[in-house]
């Protein structure tokens, strides 16, 4: 393993721990953004420049903006209490997970021959040729997300009573002046 990649992955893990354990939500969001930026560097070093650009611009940029906006809109003063029981169960689950990874990964990578796709293809050829249906799925997901957000922030139309009250208030204001 490349030592620079190892250092970067350790830094990513530290940032993930900070994002999860920091009490201040804004600092946690910034840690998450730094983690994404470091992951983009790792992706670039692993011969995946397009994924790195997407990771850096969309995840480190756009998602951080979304998180910071949500934190600014909510301003949660009270600290929400956290559950304690996973502290005791979790190390066991983590150890089990490690054993599964060590056992399963070599078997998975040994079972299929390397390069069954087309290794000479380009990124554009793969995305628009081999995975063109994914693009349709992406468009559907984007529309789903946009309409989901619109539906959640939809203003309720005023009722007849509210309209009448608003008109009365307006008339009262006119008389006053």
């Amino acid at each position: 393993m490349d030592p620079i990649n190892l250092i970067l992955l350790i830094a990513i893990t530290v940032m993930a721990v900070l994002a999860v354990f920091l009490r201040d939500l804004l600092r946690a969001a910034v840690s998450l953004a730094l983690m994404s930026a470091l992951l983009a560097v790792v992706l670039y070093r692993m011969d995946s420049p397009y994924a790195a650009v997407f990771e850096l611009s969309v995840v480190a940029g756009l998602i951080t903006v979304l998180f910071v906006s949500a934190i600014a809109l909510t301003k949660d003063e009270e600290q929400v209490a956290e559950a304690r029981w996973p502290l005791y169960v979790f190390p066991l689950a983590l150890a089990l997970f490690g054993v599964i990874i060590l056992a399963a990964v070599p078997a998975l990578f040994g079972s299929t021959p390397a390069g069954w796709g087309n290794p000479t293809a380009t990124f554009g050829g793969t995305l628009w040729g081999l995975r063109s249906l994914d693009v349709l799925g992406q468009i559907a997901v984007i529309f789903g997300g946009v309409f989901g957000v619109l539906a959640l922030f939809r203003e309720k139309p005023p009722t007849a009573k509210e309209k009448l009250e608003a008109e009365k208030a307006k008339e009262g204001g006119n008389r006053l002046w």
Binding site: G117, T126, Q138, V149
Partner: peptide, 25 residues
């Protein structure tokens, strides 16, 4: 590891789009 970075990148791009929509909603 398998020398198929283009395929994995196209999957990651799709995944990132889905991820952004999930976070926004």
């Amino acid at each position: 590891a398998r020398g198929e970075t283009f395929l994995s990148q196209s999957l990651v791009v799709t995944f990132i789009v889905v991820e952004v929509c999930i976070v926004a909603v």
